[in-house]
Computed example of a mutant assay.
Amino acid sequence: MVKQALPVALFIAVLVSALALAGVSISPAVTEILLPPGASYTGEITVQNTSDESVVVEAVVRGFTSPKGVPILLDPSIDNYKYSGREVLTITPNKQRIGPGESVVFNYTVTVPENLDPYGGRYAAAVFKVEPPSASEAQVVVTAQVASLFLLNPGGDAAPHFTFKDFRVWQDVGNPRLIHCDGLIINDGNVHADTEQMYGFMQITDRDGYIVGQMVWHPHTMLPDNSYRHEETWEAPDWLQSGTYYFYMTTIIYRPDGEDPQRYFAVFEEDLQF
């Protein structure tokens, strides 16, 4: 199964910003592939020159990770991310010239090793370095780069698993009715979970068990062996009085093929003063 242009909000936002600076557009920007060990998949990436001058585009492969939801390309000399996919992706040709308004196609092949160690997802980027086709000695050549990201899932025993730590609830200093809640989220599984696989919410009750409000969690796509602090806010209604309230947090991470999802549940007691 191949999914392109995933709703990976932070991934897409970063890529679109980079594309605007580079003067090119790429499609797809993000591709997710379900590919078992020993299998290969081929496809195309289209690069369009949106500027008014010719450019030379060079393609290289990098592994990437994504702490805090922002992709970080890994230089091979320091790439020690155990789920890096730099060895499973190849791009041809390695360089092309693109005239103003023209498009070219780069071909890619993804091959998952038969013996995948450690077992789990692989994360690679086709990086396109963009520069003018020529420059005189007096010119300063500025090279920009953009990337098409690959999220590879080998299936089988690959699954995300979340651990939640250090959750806290507090009132905003400037606006006591603005309630903050944050905590550390860790994907200690062996494959990514995207935003369409997760759902979380927190219901707030009074001491009698009546619901007085709710906040919905919006976690971003998380790669394995990544963590970040996630924060949401809730505006307490004007009629809510000072007192003790209970924050019931529920998070569900869905798995493929109807497998039992991972569930996380916690309760936090908080005295609110308005």
Rank of each mutant, 00 (worst) to 15 (best):
M1I: 10
M1A: 13
V2M: 11
Q4V: 15
Q4W: 08
Q4E: 15
P7Y: 09
L10E: 14
A18Q: 15
L19W: 00
L19C: 01
A22G: 13
A22K: 12
V30C: 04
E32N: 05
G38Y: 08
G38M: 03
S40R: 13
Y41Q: 13
Y41T: 10
Q48V: 10
Q48F: 01
S51R: 01
E53W: 10
S54G: 11
V56C: 08
V57F: 06
F64Y: 15
F64G: 12
T65F: 05
T65V: 06
V70N: 12
P71V: 04
S77L: 12
D79M: 05
D79C: 03
S84D: 05
R86A: 15
E87P: 02
L89Q: 11
T92L: 12
P93I: 00
P93S: 02
N94R: 13
R97C: 06
P100I: 05
P100M: 05
G101A: 09
S103H: 04
S103V: 03
S103Y: 06
V104D: 04
F106K: 04
T109Q: 12
T111C: 07
T111R: 14
G120D: 06
G121V: 06
R122F: 10
A124K: 11
F128M: 01
P133Q: 04
Q139G: 03
Q139E: 15
T143N: 08
A144S: 15
Q145M: 14
A147T: 07
L149N: 06
L151P: 01
L151W: 07
L152Y: 09
N153S: 11
P154M: 07
G155I: 10
G156M: 05
P160H: 03
H161D: 04
F162Q: 06
G174R: 03
G174A: 00
C181T: 13
D182P: 01
D182T: 02
I185K: 01
G189V: 08
N190Q: 05
H192E: 08
A193P: 04
M198K: 13
F201P: 00
M202K: 12
I204W: 02
T205W: 00
D208V: 03
G209V: 05
I211V: 15
I211E: 15
V212K: 04
V212E: 06
V212A: 06
G213Q: 06
W217P: 02
H220E: 03
T221W: 11
D225C: 07
N226S: 14
H230C: 02
A236S: 00
D238T: 13
D238F: 08
D238M: 07
D238S: 12
L240Q: 07
S242D: 01
S242F: 00
Y245P: 02
F247E: 04
F247K: 08
Y248T: 05
R255F: 14
D257L: 03
D257H: 09
P261I: 03
P261V: 09
Q262W: 07
R263H: 10
V267W: 01
V267N: 05
F268D: 02
E269K: 11
E269D: 02
E269F: 01
D271S: 02
D271G: 01
